[in-house]
Structures are given as structure tokens and as C-alpha cells.
């Protein structure tokens, strides 16, 4: 290597954070571990999924948990053509906002549709659980299109 060549080296920063989740998200995560999806009822009657600790309008504490369905509707989505190492799937997939049955807000997650042409706003999708669940959002491996679409 000539003396004039510029040196290049990998520089990797890693922060092994553990985050405490609090009582509301803690219960949501516990539900996921048990294969259940729980939202929370807001003061205006809406069901928020994932649950919020405080009412988005009145700011009061919320504690009325509501179990919602394991399938729902894609409200918007973006197709990832070339997944990168930290992504949940190694093949092309969609990031999507999914409004589960019984919920009034949408959850950001992954749709494993195989091909972009299978994706559509308002399509129905269903949860695919991970085999070994530990109580984190990745316990939902992804959502998949409902059969018969």
C-alpha cells in the first residue's frame, strides 16, 4: 500500500440498551408473550393499539385494557425492496400501519406478502406469531395476507 493511500476502517457503535416499559406497555408486552393483543380505551371511547399511558386528548391516565382481534386492515404501507441487516425479514416486505379488528388506531408492523403486487391499502392481514415469545413487539413475527383475498 502506497504511503499516500487513505486508511479506511470499520467503526461500529453499539449501545446495548434495556428499556423499562412501565405498567401499560408492560401489560401490552406481557399480552404479546401470551399470544394476545391488548389495547386501551381512551376517554372518547376509542381503543388505542398499541396502548397509550395517557389519554391523547385529556391527558388523564388510562387503565381500561381491551383485547382486540388478531387480524385487521392495512391503512397505509411502504414496500422494502432490499431489506438491510437490521430488518425483521431477509426478503422484500412491507412496513404497514395495521388497524386491528376492534381497534381505532393503527399499529406499525411488517407484512410478509411475498411480492409488492400482493399489497394494497385496505387489504386484510393476520398476525403470524413467533414460535418462542419473550414479551416484545417482535413476538409478532409479521402479518400475512388473509387467505381468500
Amino acid at each position: 500500500m502506497a504511503d499516500t493511500d487513505v486508511l479506511v476502517a470499520p467503526n461500529i457503535l453499539e449501545y446495548p440498551y434495556t428499556r423499562t416499559v412501565g405498567p401499560v406497555l408492560g401489560r401490552f408486552m406481557t399480552g404479546l408473550r401470551d399470544g394476545r393483543i391488548e389495547g386501551i380505551r381512551a376517554s372518547d371511547g376509542r381503543v388505542l393499539v398499541p396502548p397509550a399511558e395517557y389519554d391523547p386528548v385529556t391527558s388523564e391516565s388510562l387503565d381500561q385494557f381491551v383485547e382486540v382481534g388478531q387480524a385487521g386492515v392495512v391503512t397505509t404501507w411502504a414496500w422494502v425492496t432490499e431489506p438491510r441487516p437490521p430488518h425483521p425479514l431477509e426478503r422484500p416486505f412491507a412496513w404497514a400501519l395495521i388497524r386491528l379488528d376492534g381497534a381505532d388506531t393503527a399499529l406499525l408492523h411488517v407484512v410478509d406478502a411475498g411480492d409488492e403486487s400482493k399489497m394494497a391499502t385496505r387489504m386484510r392481514v393476520r398476525v403470524r406469531w413467533r414460535d418462542h415469545r419473550v414479551g416484545e413487539i417482535q413476538d409478532i413475527a409479521c402479518f400475512v395476507p388473509e387467505e381468500g383475498q
Partner: peptide
């Protein structure tokens, strides 16, 4: 569940 792993990794 009281906590989750949330590692951050930046590859430069």
C-alpha cells in the same frame, strides 16, 4: 414484562 432489549447498532 417490565423491560425490553432495545440495542442500537450503527455501522460506519
Amino acid at each position: 414484562v417490565r423491560s425490553i432489549r432495545a440495542p442500537a447498532r450503527l455501522e460506519y
